[in-house]
Amino acid sequence: MSVMGIAATVATVLIAAAAVLAIVRLERGPSMLDRTIAFDVLTSTIVGAVAVEAAWSRRTESIPILVVLSLVGFIGSVAIARFAAVEPESERRIRTREEVAAENAAEIAALEAELEAQRRARRRGSVPPRPDDADGEGGAV
């Protein structure tokens, strides 16, 4: 195995490890911007892999890919930083089944309380409370 063969093998292993670590950060987040910079690392690893391949096989056809990648990575991170960086606090992570159920129950309870309040207000408006009606319910209609 030539010097270049050994170097290309070691470099490929290092670059693959970097890509795996970048994907780990891409999955963990926690924010969109962390994923953006993890994606930058991923782009760098792709550029490095193409460069190693070009050096190992002495082919010049893959060099234009590097030009394209260096520009596409830029457009991606600028677009995310400009338009997708603002995210609601609740959308940072995927909620568990219990949390979703609890939130739905709370929403339904709030809706019912509002409906009940409206019903009482309507009743009070149509039948004025008698002086002896202490609780202000309006009495039976």
Binding site: L14, A18, A38, V41
Partner: peptide
């Protein structure tokens, strides 16, 4: 490149 991968994690 590898050091960037380690650092980003």
């Amino acid at each position: 490149t590898f050091s960037a991968g380690v650092g980003v994690v």
